[in-house]
Amino acid sequence: MSDRAQHYYVPRPSHWMIFGSVGLFCMATGAASWLNGWEPGRYIVLAGLAILAFMMARWFGDVIRESEGGKYGRWEDVSFRWGMSWFIFSEVMFFAAFFGALYYARLLAVPDLGSIDNKLLWPDFAAQWPTAGPVFKDPFTPMAAWGIPALNTLLLLSSGVTVTLAHWALKEGKRAQLALFMLFTVVLGVTFLCFQAYEYGHAYSDLNLKLSTGVYGSTFFMLTGFHGFHVTLGTIMLTVILARCLAGHFRPENHFAFEAVAWYWHFVDVVWLGLFVFVYWL
């Protein structure tokens, strides 16, 4: 906030947000009817998604134009930094709910189900982890940590490094290096996703490990699934940034959008480490 006399940029009225609301409305009503057996609901969901994507594109398009048009100074930049940080914090809390569920199931619910009192209800349930609970008898194999997951850890960690290298390159004005490292990062992200998809296929077809495989399957797929979803978003965001790099956007001293996406990517990375340790390994 070097110069407090400057004016804060307050954008003029905008048409895009209401599209977002319409999109959300379509998605919610579509999903609710689809889930309750009305097949065409899925098309309403898709339409909603499309509207939402349109809104994002136009809205962020405006922001990019304003940014490149020099409307944002230091003051606005600080706002963006606070905004992104607290957004990531809220994402952390979202994952915390699922990690909490995993913790609760493993350390409290399952031992409780196998306790003396509960012999009355589940006489032959032995508390252990992983488990699909006292009723689901279908045998399944839990996911091993040291195959694809370990490889994926490596992939994500190196993608964290490549983003950072790209950032350095950007700060030093080396555009070619910047583009190259961004490209690496995107490729690593996509590879991660492919492995993850393969792993899911493997779980379903070979391990008999499904979303419906009791509490183990539930926590496994929900945690890794939401993480995968965030990696997907992150990859899309990285791709946009890559495109903007190629279009010549960003300056060595002013490139918050780049940093925001990099932060997000690191956040996705850290969540994965948590997953690797608590879901796959221990």
Binding site: L113, D117, N118, L120, L121, P134
Partner: peptide, 13 residues
Amino acid sequence: GVKQDAIPGFVRD
């Protein structure tokens, strides 16, 4: 002075 929830799948006392 008794109130205890009955939880499906668990035994409480």
